[in-house]
Design a protein around this nucleic acid. Structure first.
Length: 920
RNA sequence: GCCCGAGUGGCGGAAUGGUAGACGCGCUGGACUCAAAAUCCUGUGUCCUUUAAAGACGUGUGGGUUCGAUUCCCACCUCGGGCACCA
């Protein structure tokens, strides 16, 4: 019998489904292990060979953990709301649900061929109303909560209103959009609308004004990645910055906790670093500078991390968008300032970022007073100060801040060094080192010392206070689009009011078109009767990350209609033990999920503070493109080795008509009409193509479809080969050339059991050498899988097979199949069954490793003289280093290699190496 | 500009202080075959040498630590990734 992978793979995929081999239940008798892939967005293009890389790795780990006796949760589903389906709908008029359904079916078909051990009973899509009910539910929870800084957690908004009733804002320490102050009496006197507005300032899900990319032509807000060079990516329409009221999530309230608990996670350092940068903690000081405008005094609070340099302040700068800008502009400067503001407003976010080299600004006419020195300094307005960070105002110290320096040079402002011996003639001195000078009481101190001393001083004198700022912004949560979760909010007398929980899910309404309305309303405004009890419902929808923020919780209990996840299921599965996915989600999904989870944790709905304990980022699989070289102006194509003799043009050629870089000439002529009469300049009778590693994409003709690999080599070969390609976390090119190696390996495995039509497995006792090969493999596989070094595990299989050549003994082959089964489950199941087992190999016991079989009695020591190996010697492993040394010193060869020198010392590395150090 | 990560045969890669190049691809020669495919066996870092033995060189470059460095330290070069007026 031959290794008929097609038959075997079909048979076992059907059988796993039929027998529900991978159905998972809570089982208190077993330790749990939750393995999760970042679920895919089902695009119209289907999967290419790069997509399943992470899925294969997680599947191997899942199967391995099952063999180790764990109860493994390994689910899959789809992130199905999103822009591409909607855009396609706008163009074709097809309902996004239809295209999404079609794409999901195609993905499922492709995934099924690879033989994953998912529990498909737990599958759901983020666009299923039964699921997005819980996305809406979570939103309402956030709407109903505020963040109490003193308690360090989210609390019901009722606690806050009770406090307002009792004593107004006195003693409240809550995360808010802007600080408010009122008394209990004032609160009681507020109208319903005013109260609602005040509470919005505190809610975790709130409506607030923020600056967004607005595209008038498309009538929608666009995300930053949908805008390029000030134009919309789709359509090329101009995009402007506009202040709009949007739903937002108060992620910033969690900045400190998101940063701190990074320490507890088993993620790569680079990923944690990316999140740290994104959260951007900076500890500094807020200081009040009184500013005089035409005799009027305004207190301006600035934020700085370098209070120590306050004696070097020679001017101040306001952000153009700051509320203070109009207040501090003198009549004399009014025209100039307004002109500048108009100029700034015209620029898009992109242009502002792109033109960081050009320095712009205008003088306000006002002067601030340095609270430490009493000195008067001019107040400028410049776009290099951001309204959204700190207080939107800074003190400028050009001698010790490079941005202030450039600004001072451009506008001829004073640069005053306050660190001894630094040279500021060419650039500022930003380093936090040196001794202070020209700085009053700070003189003579080291910079680090001075920072603390200055902070203490400012606080003592009541001039300011210590302050920690974060760069992390609140997440804008509404989109003017159709294909997303509707907000469970209606407007009663214009006041945003939550829908009652028993009205969830609020399902997406039908609309005649998926575009915004003519007057710029979101698509949901087209729906008939989009109201609740006669009041209008919110017409924007939630963004893509809403549905993916808590999906890992839903897999624990996917059919529960009473809760996102039951207490029991959550208590059993807790959180994800291993999460595999790409780095591109480092500052999106992986921040939002952590925030979402922490919020639910605060409310007691989940038992773990962090969602993903260990995270592995699989690398990208790039494409390997092939080229042909056309002699310029002709239809002649020259082979790679001869192309330098001609003037040529490089042309991408479909990799499906190239094998081992050799072009199939007939297929090439048939590929495109213009190549029908192509002529070739061959070398050694063949046309050799050039190649390059590029992104896998249709336009490069280098897309490899996993279905083709499954047809030609089988899913087991695909799985092994994807792992064999290189380290999981590294980006690497796909090259189908090498796949024959692993395919050959599987054929050889088959032949251990079958000699043509004869099943040849015997019950003979294995030899010590065979046992040793097996146990070496057991040890290696365990070590490598735990470290996600799958490529070396595949190598270890190949080495073991070479050592076990011709061994058809049951006592060896049974454990060998178990070891192989996570990697190549179909062939392992088939042969396992042929050995007489009726139960699936998936739940066999991982073979135990017997140390005795891997330990050699003798070690072969290389003997080196001054580091150069001269000969080897076989010695029992049991010898102590001293005994080995004595033996080696006594050898005849040792004397021969000494060459008149004397032995200074002998270094023995037990079991590895002997080095004899010689001296004259 | 700042912060990470990586540089090893023709190619993917292995070795984390102890015989560099495991394993696989490709290539060489051979067996089987009328022939091809498939399969099996052999060799395969570079240089010197007719060949072999033996030797020298060899992990981006230059230094250092060490009996011994791909591995640790310093500087530089190249590539990849992330952040970027965040006061």
């Amino acid at each position: 019998m031959d290794y008929n992978f097609r038959e075997i793979e079909q048979k076992w995929q059907a059988r796993w489904a039929e027998r529900q081999t991978f159905k998972t239940r809570e089982d208190a008798s077993k330790p749990k292990f939750y393995v999760l892939d970042m679920f895919p967005y089902p695009s119209g293009a289907g999967l290419h060979v790069g997509h399943p890389l992470g899925y294969i790795a997680s599947d191997i780990f899942s199967r391995y953990k099952r063999l180790k006796g764990f109860n493994v949760l390994h689910p899959m589903g789809y992130d199905a709301f999103g822009l591409p389906a909607e855009q396609y709908a706008i163009q074709t008029g097809q309902h996004p649900e239809v295209t999404t359904h079609r794409n999901v079916a195609r993905y499922r078909e492709q995934l099924d061929r690879i033989g994953f051990s998912y529990d498909w009973d737990r599958e759901f899509r983020t666009c299923d109303p039964e699921y997005y009910k819980w996305t809406q539910w979570a939103f309402l929870q956030m709407f109903g909560c505020y963040y109490d800084n003193a308690k360090g957690k989210a609390c019901p908004i009722e606690d806050l209103t009770a406090a307002f009733e009792a004593h107004g804002t006195e003693g409240i320490d809550a995360a808010c959009s802007e600080p408010l102050t009122f008394t209990a009496d004032q609160w009681k006197a507020f109208s319903e609308a005013e109260k609602s507005k005040v509470l919005m300032n505190y809610r975790i899900a709130y409506q607030g004004e923020s600056s967004v990319n607005w595209c008038p032509a498309l009538g929608t807000v666009l995300a930053n990645d949908e805008v390029k060079d000030g134009l919309s990516v789709r359509g090329g329409h101009p995009v402007e910055q506009k202040k709009m009221t949007q739903w937002q999530l108060r992620v910033s309230a969690y900045a400190g906790r998101l940063l701190e608990s990074l320490e507890t996670l088993d993620w790569t350092d680079s990923l944690k670093e990316m999140q740290r940068n994104w959260i951007g903690r900076s500890a500094g000081c807020e200081v009040v500078f009184p500013v005089e405008t035409e005799g009027k005094r305004t207190d301006v609070t600035i934020f700085t991390t370098r209070v120590d340099t306050i004696f070097g302040v020679t001017f101040m700068v306001l952000a153009p968008e700051s509320d203070l800008t109009p207040l501090l502009t003198t009549p004399a400067q009014k025209a100039a300032v307004e002109e500048y503001l108009a100029y700034v407003k015209k620029k898009t976010e992109r242009e502002r970022i792109a033109e960081t080299k050009t320095v712009t600004g205008v003088f306000s006419g006002s002067y601030g007073i340095n609270p430490l020195t009493g000195e008067k300094v001019p107040v400028w307005i410049s776009e290099y100060v951001l309204a959204g960070y700190g207080t939107g105002a800074i003190m400028a110290v050009p001698a010790h801040d490079s941005r202030d320096y450039v600004f001072a040079k451009k506008f001829g402002l004073e640069i005053r060094p306050i660190i001894e011996g630094c040279d500021v003639s060419e650039s500022s001195f930003d380093a936090k080192e040196g001794k202070m000078c020209n700085s009053g009481f700070l003189n003579g101190m080291d910079v680090k010392e001075a920072i603390e001393a200055a902070k203490d001083y400012v606080e003592e004198k009541g001039l300011g206070h210590r302050k920690v700022n974060y760069r992390l912004r609140d997440a804008i949560f509404s989109r003017q689009r159709y294909w997303g979760e509707p907000f469970p909010i209606y407007y009663k007398n214009g006041i945003p009011t939550p829908l009652p929980l028993d009205k969830l899910p609020l399902t997406l309404p039908e609309v005649d078109e998926f575009k915004p309305t003519e007057d710029g309303q979101p698509p949901l405004a087209r729906a008939k009767d989009w109201t609740y009890e006669g009041w209008p419902l919110e017409t924007s929808t939630m963004p893509g990350f809403a549905g993916s923020s808590a999906y890992y919780l839903r897999y624990m209990d996917p059919h529960n209609d009473n809760a996102l996840v039951s207490r029991e299921a959550d208590g059993y599965w807790r959180n994800v033990d291993l999460y595999i996915g790409g780095t591109e989600h480092a500052t999106g999904h992986l921040i939002y999920s952590r925030f979402w989870n922490k919020f639910l944790f605060d409310l007691g709905y989940v038992c773990e503070d962090e969602p993903f304990r260990k995270l592995i980022n699989q690398g990208m699989i790039q494409g390997r493109s092939n080229f042909v070289y056309r002699v310029v102006g002709t239809n002649r194509f020259v082979s790679l080795g001869l192309k330098d003799q001609y003037e040529t043009q490089e042309i991408h050629v479909d990799i499906n008509i190239v094998r081992n870089d050799k072009l199939d000439l007939e297929a090439f002529r048939a590929w495109r009409p213009e190549f029908k009469d192509a002529e070739f300049i061959l070398e050694n009778g063949e046309y050799i193509c050039g190649w390059a590693v590029e992104k896998m994409s249709k336009s490069m003709f280098n897309v490899v479809n996993p279905d083709d690999i499954c047809n030609n080599y089988g899913a087991d070969t695909l799985r092994l080969y994807e792992m064999f390609l290189g380290p999981l976390e590294q980006s690497k090119p796909w090259d189908t050339k090498g796949i024959d190696g692993v395919n050959r390996f599987l054929k050889k495995v088959w032949r251990l059991f079958w000699d043509h039509d004869k099943f040849i497995v015997s019950d003979e006792a294995p030899t010590p050498a065979e046992l040793k090969a097996l146990h070496k493999l057991i040890a290696k596989e365990q070590e490598d899988i735990e470290h996600f070094s799958y490529n070396t595990t595949v190598s270890a299989f190949m080495i073991a097979l070479n050592e076990l050549q011709g061994c058809s003994k049951r006592a060896i082959l049974e454990p060998f199949l178990i070891l192989l089964s996570p990697f190549a489950p179909h062939i392992a199941e088939e042969l396992w069954e042929q050995l007489g087992h009726s139960e699936s190999i998936a739940y066999a016991a991982f073979p135990e490793y017997v140390a005795a079989y891997t330990a050699e009695d003798n070690a072969t020591y290389p003997v080196a003289f001054n580091g150069k190996t001269r000969f080897t010697v076989d010695l029992p492993k049991t010898l102590s280093p001293a005994e080995v040394e004595a033996h080696v010193r006594g050898l005849e060869q040792t004397a021969r290699y000494q060459g008149g020198m004397t032995i200074a010392k002998v270094i023995v590395v037990p079991g590895r190496m002997i080095n004899i150090v010689l001296k004259k």
